[in-house]
């Protein structure tokens, strides 16, 4: 069965990759067209800054071109590309962490107290809180959460993209929600 990766089919991806290996600029541009938004969503979900996310998109495609010779046909191209984007985003956050100690809360669990609605309504920003809470999730749980909630992918599509079983995706999603509920318990008004 022909799988769809955005607007590019798997067969088309294989064809384009072969042409990129031979230095075809047009083929490379088509790959960028097909995957730029997916990479952006992943990068933005991790760094939550438009310019940084765009830089990461550029860096991801540059790395893709550098490594294209190592890509083997029949390998899951989307998973491969997302792995590059994810690694670059993690590197970026690590660099940022070492530069700015303030950003420690983005990476490490339990370091920062998130404001609750009862504290100060001006400080209570749900978008800010969910971003920080998601950033604290373990890598695979975070990725599944981002792909499902921001990229709106079904479990089956996530399984295919990450090359894991649907059952594992379901389990990772469940664990991610449980952890987020625990982190955001005061804001959600409940608790585990």
């Amino acid at each position: 069965m022909e799988q769809r990766n955005g607007c590019i089919s798997e067969i088309e991806v294989e064809f384009l990759v072969e042409r990129i290996k031979q230095g075809d600029k047009e083929a490379f541009m088509k790959i960028v067209e097909g995957y730029q938004q997916k990479v952006f969503i992943l990068a933005y979900s991790m760094v939550r800054n438009r310019e940084d996310a765009l830089d990461l998109v550029q860096e991801t495609f540059m790395r893709l071109y550098e490594k294209i010779q190592t890509y083997r046909p029949k390998e899951n191209f989307t998973a491969w590309l997302m792995q590059i984007a994810r690694n670059l985003s993690i590197d970026f956050l690590r660099r940022q962490k070492s530069r700015k100690k303030d950003n420690l809360d983005v990476l490490e669990l339990g370091r920062v107290d998130l404001p609750s609605p009862s504290d100060d309504p001006a400080k209570f920003n749900p978008k800010e809180m969910i971003h920080k809470a998601v950033a604290r999730l373990p890598e695979k749980q975070k990725l599944v959460f981002i792909l499902h909630h921001y990229d709106e992918l079904k479990y089956e599509e996530i399984a295919e993209r990450l090359q894991i079983s649907v059952g594992t995706v379901k389990s990772l999603h469940f664990k991610a929600i449980q952890k987020l509920r625990k982190i955001l318990a005061p804001q959600l008004g409940g608790g585990l």
Binding site: P126, I130, V134, Y150, I177, R181, L188, G190
Partner: peptide, 14 residues
């Protein structure tokens, strides 16, 4: 209900 609120927050981020 709690999970729905969480999903709603993630929708805000989305």
């Amino acid at each position: 209900e709690e999970i729905k609120r969480l999903f709603s927050m993630s929708k805000d981020f989305k």
